[in-house]
Write a protein that binds this DNA or RNA. Structure first.
Lengths: 338, 338
DNA sequence: TCCCTTTGTGCAAGCGCTTGCTCACCTGAT
DNA sequence: ATCAGGTGAGCAAGCGCTTGCACAAAGGGA
């Protein structure tokens, strides 16, 4: 049978309340009592029963995460573990655990979140989302439930969020390609309804405009690169009269697909065309050619998100609601024109 | 304020116990009462408070997972999300959630698990581990806590585990290379203390022996391929008089490193040397050359693990304790000698 | 010496839910 | 008309913990 606070109390010859207070570290307890209780405490290997504690204290010491659905958001897969690690590390530093839910369907996803929130399973939620219209955000707003967004939304400025400055990042990435002598630069986009996609496109456009280089519409292609349709798009792009000499790609994972597609068409990177992408996943360094990428500080993103959420839960006055994690351009072979 | 069972009871003009029984679906309740309560139930959007329910029922409807530590187990990173998805999908089908913990240090990892188990936070644990001597397994055994192992151990045959037949898989993979005309085949290994490593090595050896081809010790190298030392090992291997014409690589992620290393040394795959690996991560298909790999059915692995654990928790008699998920050889460019 | 603080501890209520038991009522067979 | 048995619902205890409040003992100033 599990060892309860009562067992400890009996063995230490005090009342349960005293034990509780010793653990909490508040309340006025005699010095020797504290020592005695502590002794028994780890003699018995006591751990408070979480549910009971939660019930009494009205708090769960748990953060919720919704794992993004696969078909919707394939590429977050590649950096997801790193993100989790950031969140989890910060959380456990405050004694918080992570409750995770998935749903293959939007419906299930919503239900999971509802159960978490209405069921009082978590104190706050980390939402990994950058869809323009996110029903989960709406849900949390309606419930007025504490949450932090990794990414950004356009609902309300007061939403606590942690993000990369994607516009800036894309701007710099494009500038890098320009500095390498590219004038015609294309863009391989992700799902249109993701804000991150919109932002990166914007940064790219800005850099091109500033440099005085026109952007052709045909240079912007859809990056469902894990599918056949992606290959077709790439192939059409390369057949253009004035085809780009470089591409900005929405994500490293997608970039792998682009690289593959180009290879099959007989093109070499970076000799025939340069590539530069985002997220700097672990394998980007190991591909041939290695991928130039924007490192978005994935771990840091998760860590900070958890940190800010915990501050919010602790009732700290939040100075601002939006936090930008610095990114870093990592130049590798795929963009270095010989 | 949260809506409690009492609120529902009041509004439906019944006692809380009746509401509870309506929800549980047991107990003798009048037909019209049920209808009335149901009505109020979703009118108010009631969700039972998880902690309270857990306290009363002595169950948490939660499964625990320990996320493997990074430095220890880098490459599980690549298929981890998929595994989680499998676990989570099965779990949520039974109304279970997933509690996840990390620890960067072995110490923290242990503490997380202890908190989970002793704190009554979870009903069972899914352990992703294949270290030979795993302190976490020991902990769970001591506590006699229900768990399922993804991988296998050598402690006790009664441990519930779900695994790939790694010996067999490695055997087949090696046979494939042999069928391609390779006689001298090397092996790029992972951390020596992982059972999966040992098993795959064994399968490889068996296939070689059966074919009557000798295995040189120098052909078996350590695959810390994300490090410098890995490159050195590869380079030394390739300088051997009787260097292998093919390599079995412990993991796709590592294989990316090998591929990279070989490329830097001026070798081409598969022309100069063939490569074949394990796990079939998403990007294996997209690299150039694409990677021949054993698909271990990652999702299925997670799903089955959760399934068996839930059966165990439900008190079902378990017919056997070890479940093997079928693997599948996926032949791609890296092993096809032209 | 008396009274007012301060200090250390226990009592008991309550967090939201489940469940064994009791009890009132309604059948239908005798 | 009577009563056994079935049916529908509520009472109250209890899950393991926290915490406001009461209270006893000890200390200190007048």
């Amino acid at each position: 049978m599990r060892v309860t606070i009562k067992d400890v109390a009996n063995k230490a010859q005090v009342s349960p309340s005293t034990v509780s207070r010793v653990i909490a570290g508040n309340g006025r307890i005699g010095k020797d009592t504290i020592l005695r209780v502590r002794q028994v405490l780890d003699e018995l290997g006591y751990h408070p029963h979480h549910a009971a504690q939660g019930l009494a204290k009205r708090t769960t010491c748990t953060l919720g995460i919704i794992l993004p659905r696969t078909p919707d958001d394939v590429f977050s897969n590649f950096f997801f573990p790193e993100l989790i690690r950031g969140i989890s590390t910060r959380a456990s530093r405050s004694g918080f655990d992570i409750l995770m839910a998935t749903g293959s369907l939007a419906q299930e996803e919503r239900e999971s979140l509802t159960r978490m929130v209405r069921g009082g399973r978590v104190d706050g939620v980390v939402l990994l989302s950058s869809r323009l219209e996110d029903p989960l955000i709406r849900l949390l707003e309606e419930e007025q439930f504490p949450y932090v967004l990794i990414g950004r939304n356009d609902y309300s400025a007061s939403t606590l969020s942690v993000d990369t400055d994607n516009i800036r990042a894309a701007y710099e990435l494009t500038q890098h390609l320009i500095a390498q002598g590219n004038q015609r630069i294309g863009f391989v986009a992700g799902p249109a309804n993701m804000i991150v996609n919109r932002d990166r496109l914007e940064g790219y456009r800005k850099a091109m405009e500033e440099a005085g280089y026109p952007v052709q519409n045909e240079w912007i292609i859809d990056g469902e690169l894990l599918q056949q349709s992606g290959f077709r798009a790439i192939s059409m792009l390369m057949e253009l009269e004035d085809r780009p000499t470089a591409l900005v790609v929405i994500d490293d994972g997608v970039c792998f697909g682009v690289l593959r597609g180009l290879g099959e068409l007989g093109y070499h990177v970076p000799q025939d065309i340069s590539l530069a992408a985002f997220n700097n996943i672990a394998l980007s360094e190991l591909s041939t050619p290695s991928l130039t990428s924007i490192d978005i500080g994935t771990y840091q993103l998760g860590y900070t998100a958890a940190h800010q959420l915990l501050l919010l839960l602790a009732g700290e006055e939040k100075a601002k609601s939006r936090f930008i994690i610095p990114h870093r351009l990592v130049v590798r072979e795929s963009s270095l024109r010989k």
